[in-house]
Design a protein around this nucleic acid. Structure first.
Lengths: 124, 124
DNA sequence: TTGTTAATTAGGCATTTAGCTAAATACTTG
DNA sequence: CAAGTATTTAGCTAAATGCCTAATTAACAA
């Protein structure tokens, strides 16, 4: 389960346009660069991409993108794995799934509680 | 459907501990103050609470809480309705539900695409 | 070993954010 | 209308954020 501070970290990470777009890119942009051009046998996964490849899609400097990626990693919504001198980045599906679940649970509980509340009213 | 900038606004709003806790309070703290003490017939909803009641739960000044609430409202995750000289605040369930759905869809699509990707690999 | 590529760290600067107090606005009540 | 209650606005400051360039680290390749 994600605790409060983990959730806040995730929201802070995604609450910036650049990081949001980087996150999107990690999710959707992986196919074109998932396999190392020089060594097609090196497959990290269907989606993995690397820091400089992501940076190509942005106007910002590489250090800026690197720093943003660090924040996404610290929020645990992407994973980074070093292979050779590259770092491969993937979305952390488990965390994203859990976060979605939190919202769904929140809404469900709210509506259940609201029902209970009005039930009590009609009884009294 | 929530567009990108709406989502970023929501994440930014929830990516601050104070606002996160205010949001939590709007969700969970409503029962004790939902009915106007002086006029029990004024019921906004099972959950509505007001600015100063929320502020009681925090060490911060009222203007600070007010400003945070404004940000939550502008992110469209709470609604505020004026009745007399009080403002009643409720969670915006529809937005929260939609946000949860976004994450679920994201995860589902990712996994579907991953399946497709590996299917293609085995075919070739 | 020397050069090249990939990424991070350090340090600096401009902007934004999060808090405060004091003042203003809006509504209610005597 | 005057006093009281609820909330927002204005204006300020300290801290955090987001960006940059230059320097550093790490791995690979000739």
């Amino acid at each position: 389960m994600l605790d409060m501070h983990q959730k806040i970290k995730i929201f802070k990470a995604l609450g910036n346009e650049t990081r949001f777009l980087i996150f999107k890119n990690v999710f959707t942009g992986g196919y074109t660069c998932s396999i190392d051009k020089k060594d097609p046998n090196v497959k990290v996964s269907a989606h993995a991409t690397c820091v400089s490849t992501i940076a190509e899609h942005f106007e910002f400097s590489l250090p800026t993108i690197s720093k943003h990626l660090k924040e996404l990693r610290e929020a645990n919504i992407v994973t980074m794995e070093k292979k050779g001198n590259k770092i491969y980045i993937e979305p952390n599906i488990e965390t994203v799934r859990e976060l979605g679940g939190c919202f769904t649970t929140l809404v469900d509980n709210f509506e259940k509680n609201r029902e209970l509340f009005f039930d009590e009213l009609t009884l009294s």
